[in-house]
């Protein structure tokens, strides 16, 4: 197992620090998001002074490619579906924060048009990708809204219920 095995605590916890990717591991890594099956980890790192999403296999630390997410930084609030087919996150396009979903199976980047003028601050994608929770901020107040994605995305279900693929870099 890659990464640093820190301890096995008295309550049976097994601890690991996510595999370092910078020199000596001296690099900030923020906003972790696990895929539903726990196989993949998305997080935010600095790349050329810009906060950029990074997708890795949790156990090996192997970095997986993201086709559309080398631009539009800063990125924030990554969230993964069950098999990691979908990665939802916030990107910066001009002055606006925008919610998008990269479909790793089809290679498409799906912009999500939120109603109203509120700015999205945080996302949570349901593991089956049927719903999205969005924390919105407007005039100093925050609220949560839930949205139905069933007309936009195929579900990404657990094995046995599976209707869709896990995208590139999936399990053999």
């Amino acid at each position: 197992m890659a990464g640093v095995l820190l301890a096995i605590g008295g309550c049976g916890l097994r601890r690991q620090t996510a595999s370092p990717i910078g020199l000596n591991g001296a690099e900030n890594r923020e906003q972790p998001a696990l895929s539903g099956d726990g196989r993949l980890l998305a997080s935010l790192v600095e790349r050329g002074g810009r906060t950029t999403v990074l997708l890795q296999e949790r156990r090996s630390g192997k970095v997986l490619p993201l086709r559309h997410l080398r631009r539009h930084q800063p990125h924030s609030s990554p969230s993964l579906s069950w098999n990691g087919r979908y990665l939802a996150l916030l990107i910066q396009r001009g002055r606006r924060r925008e919610a998008v979903i990269e479909d790793r199976a089809s290679g498409a980047l799906q912009p999500l048009f939120l109603p109203g003028n509120a700015e999205p601050r945080r996302l949570s994608l349901a593991p089956d990708a049927r719903q999205l929770a969005v924390e919105l901020t407007s005039q100093g107040s925050t609220r949560l809204q839930l949205f139905d994605l069933s007309g936009l995305l195929e579900p990404d279900l657990a094995p046995g219920l599976r209707e869709s693929g896990g995208g590139p870099g999936g399990p053999p």
Binding site: G3, L6, G12, L13, R14, R15, Q16, T17, A18, A26, E27, N28, R29, E30, Q31, P32, A33, L34, L41, S43, R58
Partner: peptide, 17 residues
């Protein structure tokens, strides 16, 4: 997965429970 501030850096701890 836990975001942790440690030694002036943000790190991610992974806990198997």
């Amino acid at each position: 997965a836990v975001e942790v501030s440690r030694g002036g850096l943000w790190q991610i701890d992974l806990l198997e429970i």
